[in-house]
Every structure is written in C-alpha cells, then in structure tokens.
C-alpha cells in the first residue's frame, strides 16, 4: 500500500469525539493524521491541540504552513485557515469559505485524494453540517477508505448521515471502535 494518511473531519460535538477517537489510537500508530474541526475564527488561543494532546499518546500540534508531515503525528487545522496535505508536507490557505466553513473538511479530503489516491483513510465524525460529504464521495471514487461515526452515537448525526448518503462507507462505527479499526488497518497495511 505504501504510505497512507488519515484525514478526519468533525464539527458540532467534535471536541469530545476527537478526544475519544485519539485516545484509542496506538502509541505506535504509523501514519500522519490531519484533522479539521470546525471552530470560531476568533478561537486563536490555540487550546484545541492542547486539549487533544491530553487524551492522545501521539504528538498533537496545530499545523503551520509547509510543516513536514511526520508519521504518527497529529496535525490540527488552525482556525480561519483551510488545511491541505501534500505528499510530504502540510499547506494552509486563506481562500474563501467552502460551504460556510474555513477550515473545510471537503478541502482537506480533496487534497488528500489528490496526493495519496487510494491510500487515503477518511473519517467523518459528529457534526450539524454537510461538510465532508463531497470529500467522502471523492475518497470513495478513488478507491480510498471511508469510515463514518455511527450517526446514532453522534452528538449530531447530520454530518455522518450526509457522508453516508454521498458515498458507501467501508465501516460505520461508534467512536472507540473507529479507533480500534484504524489501529488494525495500520497494523495490516503499515
């Protein structure tokens, strides 16, 4: 399979959901993870990575432009920037909001598909918007892996349902099981 990337999108209720998901990831998880969590543009205190770090064995940091994308590192989109991935590095953009969102989950997923093709593993978590659905469709169209939080277990099921309506997920699971599935996937392919 070669090198893969995990891209994760979360919105309303995402802080708790990401905490649970990241806490289940193995300390030797072999792939980089890039996260878009919708949040206010004025949330510049950079607290999100700190909060997530407390629950995660992997290093978590807020993405800076051109940061090298290291295996087993977790990168969070800064508020008011789109986060994109290239093969070896992260990229940021201040371009217009996409479906009212900046950062946009669709933008992250699209960039991951362009750079990693079928090696993308995309995860759509709780949220009250349809962001991520378009990206989910692209991931599946190129043979990547799509995981969606079970809408019944999500604080808001709107975003998971939109992703499920746009593409056929490989797995629909509650949070802890999603983390375990990522561990197994990485152990098999990594």
């Amino acid at each position: 399979m070669g090198r893969a990337v995990v891209v994760i999108g979360a919105s309303l209720g995402g802080l708790d959901a990401l905490g649970v998901l990241l806490s289940t990831l193995s300390a030797s998880f072999p792939w980089p993870l890039a996260i878009v969590q919708h949040r206010s543009a004025e949330d510049v205190a950079d607290t999100l990575p700190l909060i997530l770090q407390r629950r995660c064995a992997l290093p978590v940091r807020e993405a800076e432009d051109k940061d090298p994308m290291l295996d087993g590192h977790v990168y969070v989109a800064p508020p008011d920037y789109h986060l994109l991935v290239e093969r070896a590095a992260l990229a940021l953009s201040t371009e217009a909001r996409v479906s009212l969102a900046r950062p946009s989950i669709d933008v992250l997923f699209d960039s991951a598909v362009a750079a990693f093709g079928a090696s993308v593993v995309a995860v759509v978590l709780t949220g009250a918007s349809a962001d991520g659905a378009q990206g989910a469709r692209l991931v599946k169209a190129r043979g990547g892996t799509l995981l969606v939080q079970d809408p019944a277990t999500a604080e808001s099921g709107v975003m998971p349902l939109a992703a499920i309506a746009a593409a056929k997920p490989d797995r629909v699971l509650p949070l802890a099981a999603l983390g375990e599935y990522l561990n197994r996937l990485a152990a098999m392919r990594g």
């Binding site: 789109h82 994109l84 991935v85 290239e86 990229a91 953009s93 371009e95 933008v107 699209d110 960039s111 362009a114 750079a115």
Partner: peptide, 9 residues
C-alpha cells in the same frame, strides 16, 4: 505556487 491550493483554484 503551492501545489495543493493551486490545484483547487
């Protein structure tokens, strides 16, 4: 130009 965002535009 940075490839990922240029490609989008």
């Amino acid at each position: 130009y940075a490839y990922a965002s240029l490609r989008r535009r």
